[in-house]
Design a protein around this nucleic acid. Structure first.
Lengths: 252, 252
DNA sequence: TAGCGATTGTTACATGTCATAACCCACCCG
DNA sequence: CGGGTGGGTTATGACATGTAACAATCGCTA
């Protein structure tokens, strides 16, 4: 047998403790508004002493690796869940839902957002080709899914920018061969740009650089920013909320 | 002027030491690829002991405050210098120069970029209404200058998105009254979105999330991303490099 | 030029962290 | 019921921040 179907009692206890460590770490990150978690704090909250934690994690980096992997998973899941609540043929609606989920996740979990998409935490070096890389790919795949499906369904419009450098085309084919013949290069490029635009707003807001804009204005700015990104990427308007687009006039 | 025109010898020595501390801190940040500087390391590099540094900085936060203020200044200066090397009437050229300078500064100084525009370093709390806020405003002003001048000269086109929420209009008038009657609300909004788009690409690249895209492709992607942002913001094409834009066809 | 005083930098220390080592104890299974 | 496994403890070492007390130095002035 390779895997025991029913984990032994010890294994369950161990898994529970590991989970508790992670949850405690996240709780401390939120409370202290920092990604700088201390083993001693985790242990104290859990009612044990710091060296005991080393039975579960070789060092702080290993815990961080778990937290990063998990965070990618959560972000991807949040994005996917939001997307799936909108009918598949409502491309624009799915884009708005996806982008909003991305933003909201970052706002609700700023430390975890910084953990995965900010500068690496001091002293931490991610394991090469490790689980974090896999988790990152999966999460980004959730973002890309929208474009893939829209493109295969023929519902993805032409992006604003149609020039794609040969290097970019080659890179897309090389790194994402599965998208070849599915998403045209200019749409692949536009997808990356849409992500970058979304990420820029989200980062600025999450790190407090848009605090001077009041909440309502920021929400509207986000909506309009995503509208801009959608138009640039050839994403059609949501079925229930037409873009305020067009050279002629604006809608309400 | 109330300041003494000629600082005494002691004052000059002190200023030199403070400067050396800052430079050493930056050097260590670059070498160690982290924003987490240690007083002991700085002191060791400078050939003195750690407690000596407390004669110059009350604690690590005060040093960070200086570094952040300085970084904002450097970024603003880099952006301004790049912008001024392009004729004032070449709006598109100035936009490209500004954006490229922003990106290049971040690439050359990733730690300082993270310091000012990333998540605050663990344990650091910026002083309210302090010099960092002022420096940030100044740096962002350098980014905005392009739009202000273009708008006053009547050379700024209509942005792609012309709908602006009343809250956004009110916020713009409230926080930046000096731009009232100079930059229309939809252009103000477009400016923020152009910044967000630029910042998104820059962040992703600086923190290594675009490493899978080879250098040449990334450069082209950046160019095209900025072209997209420019079109969305109503920035006309550079005089020597027309946009690859238009429903009809693309240029070379 | 001798010496005073502010400034600078030192060593010593208190505190807290990461991480290892050595030890103990409880559970579980034969 | 006895031993092995693994969870948890205290003790310890190396190192960080920041304070306190002390020593050396520099610049100025009598």
């Amino acid at each position: 047998m390779t895997t025991a179907p029913v984990p032994t009692r010890r294994e369950r206890a161990r898994a529970a403790t590991i989970s508790e460590i992670q949850q405690t770490a996240l709780q401390l990150m939120r409370q202290q508004s920092t990604t700088d978690i201390r083993f001693t704090d985790i242990a104290r909250v859990m009612g044990m002493t710091a060296p005991g934690l080393y039975r579960y994690y070789a060092d702080r980096d290993h815990l961080l690796t778990d937290l990063i992997t998990d965070a990618y998973g959560q972000l991807g899941a949040a994005v996917a869940a939001a997307r799936e609540q909108v009918p598949a043929d409502d491309i624009g609606g799915r884009w708005l839902a996806t982008a909003t989920a991305y933003r909201e996740w970052a706002r609700s979990e700023p430390q975890r957002f910084a953990l995965i998409l900010g500068m690496p935490v001091p002293g931490y070096t991610a394991p090469d080709e490790g689980p974090t890389t896999e988790a990152a790919k999966a999460a980004m795949g959730e973002l890309a899914e929208l474009f893939v499906r829209a493109s295969t369904n023929g519902r993805l419009g032409k992006p604003l920018i149609r020039d794609v450098s040969p290097e970019m085309v080659a890179c897309a084919r090389d790194k994402h061969p599965e998208l070849d013949d599915v998403v045209p290069p200019e749409s692949f490029q536009a997808m990356l740009q849409a992500w970058a635009s979304l990420h820029g707003f989200t980062s600025l807001e999450t790190y407090g650089h848009l605090d001077w804009i009041c909440q309502e204005a920021r929400d509207a700015l986000f909506r309009s920013h995503m509208e801009m990104a959608a138009k640039a990427a050839g994403i059609p308007a949501p079925v229930d909320q037409p873009w305020s687009w067009g050279p002629g006039g604006a809608s309400g």
